[in-house]
Amino acid sequence: MQTSAQLAFVLHSRPYRESSALVDFFSPEGRFRAVLRGARGKAGTLARPFIPLEAEFRGRGELRNVARLESAGIPNLLAGEALFSGLYLNELLVRLLPTEDPQPALFDHYALTLQALAANRPLEPLLRAFEWRLLDQLGYGFPLDIDVAGQPIIPDRIYRLLPDAGLEPVAQLQPGLFHGRELLALADANWDAPGALAAAKRLMRQALAPHLGGRPLVSRELFMTIKEPPRD
């Protein structure tokens, strides 16, 4: 069975048998894996991350076959920190997205985020916005302006995240907690507010952690190695 042509991006690929590759694709239809035969030829040069593709697949279920693969636009050329950021997004999608689960809105957001990374826009707001969209699309989102009891977030109060419920007020500030004013800035996507970016990074790490199963993200570890200062 051959499906109609669809837009797709490669999230990850690895060698398979003598000349094929197992490729994780992301399309508006969701994430799925397919066998790409002749991966050392022209198709193999396209089966790389961040290239907009038009593809056709045969079969359904856990493993499909690539019937056709063509370029569908200008590759998003990522380098340096933008490259590691793109790999981080790909790893999140591979780790968290269930297979065969259509995600057209998330696919569009991903494509726009890659374009923004290629244009060298500031990384942190792009990453935090994508993490939030991913959590929300998977049903793990929570309000940023209302606490677990349904009360408005108060700027001068302190809150902690209960990943399965939302934000809960606490009596005093401790490491890993959040000022209400920071949360309200995030609710408005006001990245220029004092402490907003740092709070967003901390909040997203806490929100994602339960869904990553305790396994570290390889892309995050690689990113940290390039951020470390050189040793004498």
Rank of each mutant, 00 (worst) to 15 (best):
L123G: 12
L114C: 05
G80D: 06
A129P: 02
R133H: 15
D108K: 13
P125L: 04
L134Q: 04
Q115C: 14
V94D: 00
G139Y: 02
L96M: 15
L134M: 09
Q103H: 12
Y88A: 09
E81Y: 10
L92V: 01
Q103Y: 00
L89F: 09
E100W: 13
Y88E: 10
Y140L: 01
D101W: 08
N76W: 15
N76S: 11
L117A: 12
L127M: 15
V94L: 05
L127S: 08
R95A: 07
G86T: 11
Q115P: 00
S85Y: 02
A119S: 14
A82P: 05
T99S: 03
P104H: 08
W132F: 04
Y140R: 06
W132G: 02
L112K: 14
Q115W: 08
E91C: 00
E124D: 11
E124F: 00
G80I: 14
N90Q: 01
G80N: 13
L93K: 02
P125C: 11
P102N: 09
L126I: 05
L78A: 03
Q137F: 00
L92T: 05
L89P: 06
T113M: 03
L77I: 14
A82D: 14
L126R: 04
L112I: 02
L106F: 01
L114F: 11
W132M: 05
R133M: 12
P104G: 09
D101Y: 06
R128K: 11
D136R: 02
L78R: 07
L89I: 10
L89Y: 10
P102C: 10
F84N: 15
Q103N: 03
L135R: 13
L138Q: 08
R128C: 01
A82S: 13
A111F: 02
G73F: 15
L87F: 15
A79F: 14
